[in-house]
Amino acid sequence: MSLAAIRHHNVSRLGRGTIALALLAVAVLAGACIGETPISVAVALQTLANKIFGAAYPLDPIEAGIIWNYRLPRAIVAACCGAGLAISGLVLQSLLRNALADPYLLGISAGASTGAVAVTIAGLGAGVVSLSLGAFAGAVTAFLLVAMLARAAGGGVTLHGTGQIVLAGIAGSQLFNALTSFIITKSANAEQARGIMFWLLGNLSGARWPDVWLAMPVVLLGLVACIWHARALDAFAFGAESAASLGVPVRAVQVMLIGATALVTAVMVSIVGSIGFVGLVIPHAARFLVGVRHGRLVPATALIGAAFLIAADILSRTMIAGQVLPIGVITALVGAPAFALVLIRGRRAR
């Protein structure tokens, strides 16, 4: 490749990255402005200028407080959660070579919920274990259990390309959901139980700036890990054996990326609860738009996932006047038909 071609390629990548960041900024701004009480874009931008750059625009303190203390951190957490869950689903689909793999269907989200509830309600860890750490332990435990069950059900054969991992994930989800319900019933009072059940359906109402400082570094870490291993993920499209023949350290890559997936999922669940179908739907949409090469697919998946969950959060706040729906309800309304479509397309492909 000539020097001019390399420069053109780098400029093109820089231009695509700039457009992607601009689209993400627009989505976050929309999340900050749209709600039961609409606030103009000018007020939102002036609020940001006052808070970040020390400007002195005269603003209604109530509107400025709504933007800065409530809607903006909520939109940023929604973006982080959408991006994190989407790239987690992409990684699982690529490593397992299964179009139906995602953290929700494989029981990882359910395990993270159980770990989080065990720490907050049952007092597991005696105050030493944090909520996110408990969720991470639950997520890893759930995935290991599902993987062992799927391998045993398949007679010890590889999990790639089979339906055993999805069936095992459904069983694991039911098990950990039952454990979560048991812990809530045994240890929580009525008020705690009501709040936790709403949180388990996905709830961004409590997202504040401390949640942003937790979610953003974790998602960026997961995104960097996925981009760094983009070529390895391309190699896994032909199977683990083919990836190994191409020089990919299969076991190390699997442990690294599945660990990153579990960490991202656990942190997101500890902040907003269990949100389903984002990791299933968004990677397929991104493949349709940019193709299957993970160098482009990973950032596109993260961007679409972030925008999707911000849009879902806006719908959850505006669909019914005076009420806020759990965001998991909105994602399920989109994800369930998409799940059926993937099943039908997979059957036709065979």
Rank of each mutant, 00 (worst) to 15 (best):
G273P: 07
R251A: 12
I258K: 06
P38F: 04
A153R: 12
G125I: 02
A20T: 08
R7W: 03
A147Q: 09
N69D: 15
L14A: 05
N203L: 01
I19S: 02
L315Q: 06
R13I: 04
V329I: 15
P61R: 03
G346C: 08
A49M: 10
G15I: 09
R317L: 00
R251Y: 08
I170A: 05
A285K: 02
G276C: 03
F53S: 06
E241G: 13
E241R: 15
A286N: 11
F238H: 15
A30N: 04
I121S: 04
R293S: 10
T331A: 14
L175V: 10
I67E: 01
Q192E: 13
G247V: 13
G169W: 01
G125C: 00
A27R: 08
G161W: 08
L289P: 07
I121F: 03
G107W: 10
G172T: 02
G273A: 05
I310E: 09
M1F: 08
A244M: 12
L167P: 01
S109K: 07
S205E: 06
A153N: 13
I310K: 11
R71K: 12
T158W: 01
S40R: 12
Y70A: 10
G239H: 12
L131I: 10
A244Q: 13
Q46L: 00
G291Y: 10
R251E: 15
R317Q: 04
D60T: 00
A336V: 12
A252V: 00
A56W: 05
G31S: 08
L149D: 10
L343T: 13
